[in-house]
Amino acid sequence: MYTQALNMAETDDRGLEDATKAAQFQARIDAEERIEPNDWMPAAYRKTLTRQISQHAHSEIVGMLPEGNWITRAPTLRRKAALLAKVQDECGHGLYLYAAAETLGSSREELVDAMLAGKAKYSSIFNYPTLTWADIGTIGWLVDGAAIMNQIPLCRCSYGPYARAMIRVCKEESFHQRQGYEIMVTLCRGSGEQKAMAQDALNRWWWPVLMMFGPPDATSQHSDTSTKWKIKRFSNDELRQKFVDATVPQAQYLGLTIPDPGMVQDAEGHWRYSEIDWTEFKQVLAGNGPCNRDRMAARRKAHEEGAWVREAAATYAAKRAQRQTAQAAE
């Protein structure tokens, strides 16, 4: 089912890299040119992008689970159709991103196996549970909102296939975000019980969403080279601040309270948030979030229980090819 031809081990030629080629490569990046799959690129650039794009793909796929949790219980047929369409979009993003990662020489099979073996990461936000219908609104509003903040700059990423994938992904994410916000508007205009449900969801998701932007700039490992290669255009803290500034007025419009009593607006209009609990972030990253085990178990189960189906499809395809060859020879 996957691109078997890509399953070859990558030779690490970092030691042999030509200084002239490296300089030409950086010059192209500096001139805002797009790097394409067949172009020469430093091994570390390839490795960084493969890691980032595949983690992004895994996040889309694991991200189907918390929202998928509500497809069968959506409160109206309209909401049910919209949620199903949304989760399906995420699957499409995953596929699209695996395809972008494959252009760098790693097969989808290899990348998925690494995730299932626990060697590759996915966004830790998906290790939190969706307990009520308001969580579906909140995920759309905040999680997709944060994803858009992160991903809009990636539309200008130096690697062509990733940048182009992001343009489409961002369009759909922006639709998801509006859909999530519309759920929140409906809840906040509804009964006291509905509004309380909305506030409770915001309380639970707010801090994990701020953590989505990654560790503070002072401690981030990958930023320097990623910035030099124009994979990353803004720092974690810059994007986080941008998100907070955009979100506070939206919460105010809903009449909801952001669960940060220490938050103040500074003279420049920025909303300054309190210290983030990075211990929680590290625990979730280390596998100790509320749903890490469930998410991995669900993905492994789908993969293992689907093995006979993938095998049947591959066997049938081989049989058919053999018959066609035999027919052609007659």
Binding site: M1, I61, M64, L65, G68, I71, T72, K80, L84, V87, Q88, C91, G92, G94, L95, Y98, A298, K301, A302, E305, G306, A307, V309, R310
Partner: peptide, 15 residues
Amino acid sequence: LSEWCGHAPMLEEDM
């Protein structure tokens, strides 16, 4: 069918 979403044997079938 929607019960399969996120749990299918391959991503193409989830879709």
